[in-house]
């Protein structure tokens, strides 16, 4: 199960995939990696909703990259297909890593395993909590404009002005909430010295296996393409 792996392992694996695929153009290498990722999908423990929400735009992006390169590129049909497959093969592991990881565990893993500094990691984590709050704020601002007799109607200029006013009001509120949250973190001694961690971000043999397995799949894909004679570097 991908959900039980350490988020740091999943992020490392996704980074490896990107690093290995960015320099190559051919459809075989990217296609082999994509096939391996798709094989992992059933074991990712994904819920249907985020998949339905995220996958169609991803496929659309990959398809449009392929089509645009086919029509206007000068690298040929194979390279166009390769570019589309490459995009999907790089993006899919990132999406998987994010969807199967809990934000808190990700922050823990980044800090404890990948030695990311505490302040940005925990700051982003705390800010994530404020997103639903901002959405609610935006709804209230919309109602409040109507209460003041402000409505764009069919006038696009008025719509832009109204939108800009709401964005400004939302920014003011966001900055204020953020400042208060930062003060609350400071009041709890955040950043006064070395921190300890109540939760341990555990790295198991399975996590090592995930990263090693990813590397093996990548090596296999490159090997396959070399053996078939289709292997083609970006600037070759």
């Amino acid at each position: 199960m991908l959900r039980r792996r350490n988020p740091a392992a999943k992020l490392l694996a996704a980074l490896l995939v990107a690093a290995a695929l960015v320099p190559v153009l051919d459809p075989v290498t990217a296609g082999a990696v994509l096939a391996a990722v798709v094989l992992v999908l059933p074991f990712a423990g994904l819920r249907a909703r985020p998949v339905l929400l995220l996958f169609p735009p991803l496929l659309l992006a990959a398809a449009s990259v392929a089509v645009v390169n086919l029509l206007y590129g000068d690298a040929g049909a194979a390279a166009a297909l390769g570019l589309g497959l490459r995009l999907a093969a790089i993006a899919l592991p990132c999406v998987l890593a994010v969807l199967t990881s809990d934000p808190t565990e990700t922050a823990d893993a980044l800090v404890q395993r990948l030695r990311v500094p505490e302040r940005p990691a925990l700051g982003v984590l705390a800010a994530l909590r404020l997103v639903p709050l901002l959405a609610e704020q935006w709804r209230t601002l919309t109602l409040a404009r109507r209460a003041r007799g402000l409505e764009a109607g069919a006038n696009p200029a008025a719509a832009v002005r109204l939108f800009a006013g709401k964005v400004f009001a939302l920014l003011v509120r966001a900055v204020r909430t953020g400042t208060r949250l930062a003060a609350a973190m400071d009041a709890r001694a955040f950043g006064t010295g070395p921190r300890t961690h109540a939760r341990r971000s555990v790295w198991t043999a399975a996590d090592t296996a995930l990263v090693a397995g990813t590397a093996a799949v990548l090596a296999g894909a490159h090997g396959l393409s070399l053996w078939l004679g289709t292997w083609r570097l970006l600037f070759a």
């Binding site: 208060r180 921190r195 300890t196 109540a198």
Partner: peptide, 29 residues
Amino acid sequence: VGQDPQAQLVMARTGDDVAFGPENLGLAR
């Protein structure tokens, strides 16, 4: 402790939030 509950909680889970202060103080796990 301030007045706005929304702006005082840092973590997504209850226990993690209470642990936030002790972590910052560098207490042993």
